[in-house]
């Protein structure tokens, strides 16, 4: 019954007070956990902001086991969620299945594309943001060697890596980039000990800046950088605050904004299915400068980064997208 009301409301796009009270957004976090200080935490921040702005509570589920994804999504849909936001590429298969079963429920999938009328797929141009932090890494490096620690070995993470390498090479053609992946299973998103060891191995080989695109595993990478007195680059959320002084910058991916917008548009009735691509031009990705890393980024570096940013937006610099290769 509730679902029919909701569907009717959505169809006519009239947001009445009754529907506001009935509107129940939901978010399903992926492995790595809500407080990974990175990807999932960004979604949490977006959802929290929505809750604060509108006073509408949201349902949430933290997937800790591969088989829970589908159950969690189905549960949310069955309980009449106004919109279900699914975090992460790994939920694509589950979203596709559940979205077909519940054609009236809206799904927003972050980081992967599912082509169904009731699914909105939000993907980011991580390679563009990674290009910029790659430039920052090469500019900050004294040894001419920089590192990359990925989470699970998947095309998405390779996309980060490729953009980073291209950015570093753009600044210094001779730069050497070490690349490591933490693992090949979802456990690789939450293994800080391994991340720390990988970072140390790169420092041992001469790297002095390391970029982690590895969810919760990154925490170990940043810790290792701090312990060894090297620089690290954060990912997804602005992680500069974690270790002020050794966090060079963060490649921010506005997952929080994507989640907030999904909730908001579903509430207002302006939500549409399809694919949303967010890059530098849309401010969906970028690098962060705040009081914690101000002293590490010189005015000269910032000027170069800003120049490259506008050139990428203008199409003068082409960053290769690993997925399109």
């Amino acid at each position: 019954m509730k679902r029919t009301i909701l569907a009717a409301v959505a169809a006519t796009a009239i947001a009445t007070t009754a529907s506001a009270a009935d509107f129940k957004p939901a978010v399903v976090f992926d492995m790595g956990g809500k407080f990974d200080k990175s990807f999932n935490e960004a979604a949490y921040n977006g959802a929290e902001k929505f809750k604060k702005d509108t006073g509408i509570a949201y349902r949430e589920f933290e997937v800790t086991n591969v088989s829970q994804r589908e159950q969690a999504l189905r549960n949310m849909a069955r309980r009449g969620a106004g919109i279900v936001v699914a975090m992460g590429f790994a939920q694509a298969a589950a979203v596709e299945k559940v979205a077909k079963e519940y054609p009236d429920v809206k799904f927003t999938l972050i980081d992967m594309v599912v082509d169904l009328p009731n699914v909105q797929s939000v993907v980011f141009k991580e390679h563009e943001g990674s290009f910029l932090v790659g430039m920052a890494a090469a500019m900050a490096s004294k040894t001419g060697k920089v590192g990359f620690v990925g989470g699970m070995d998947i095309p998405l993470i390779r996309k980060f890596a490729l953009g980073y390498v291209e950015g570093a090479k753009y600044v210094n053609g001779n730069v050497e980039v070490f690349q490591n992946m933490t693992g090949t299973t979802p456990a690789a998103w939450n293994d800080p000990t391994k991340g720390g060891e990988l970072a140390r191995s790169q420092f041992d080989r001469g790297a002095d800046v390391v970029y982690a695109a590895a969810g919760g595993t990154g925490i170990g990478v940043y810790q290792a950088a701090k312990d060894s007195g090297k620089l690290a680059i954060g990912v997804d959320s602005n992680q500069n605050y974690l270790h002020p002084g050794t966090m060079l910058t963060s490649m921010i991916k506005r997952v929080d904004v994507a989640v907030y917008d999904a909730f908001k548009s579903a509430k207002d009735g302006t939500w549409k299915g399809g694919i949303k691509v967010l890059g530098l031009a849309e401010e969906g990705v970028g690098y962060s400068i705040d009081e914690h890393n101000r002293s590490l980024i010189s005015a000269d570096m910032e000027a170069k980064l800003e120049k490259a940013r506008s050139e990428i937006i203008a199409g003068k610099i082409k960053v290769t997208d690993y997925m399109m290769k």
Partner: peptide
């Protein structure tokens, strides 16, 4: 050692 020396904090199933 795992939580206060090798890494910096406790994480679910960190003994792995």
């Amino acid at each position: 050692y795992l939580s206060t020396a090798h890494s910096a904090g406790f994480i679910r199933d960190m003994t792995a």
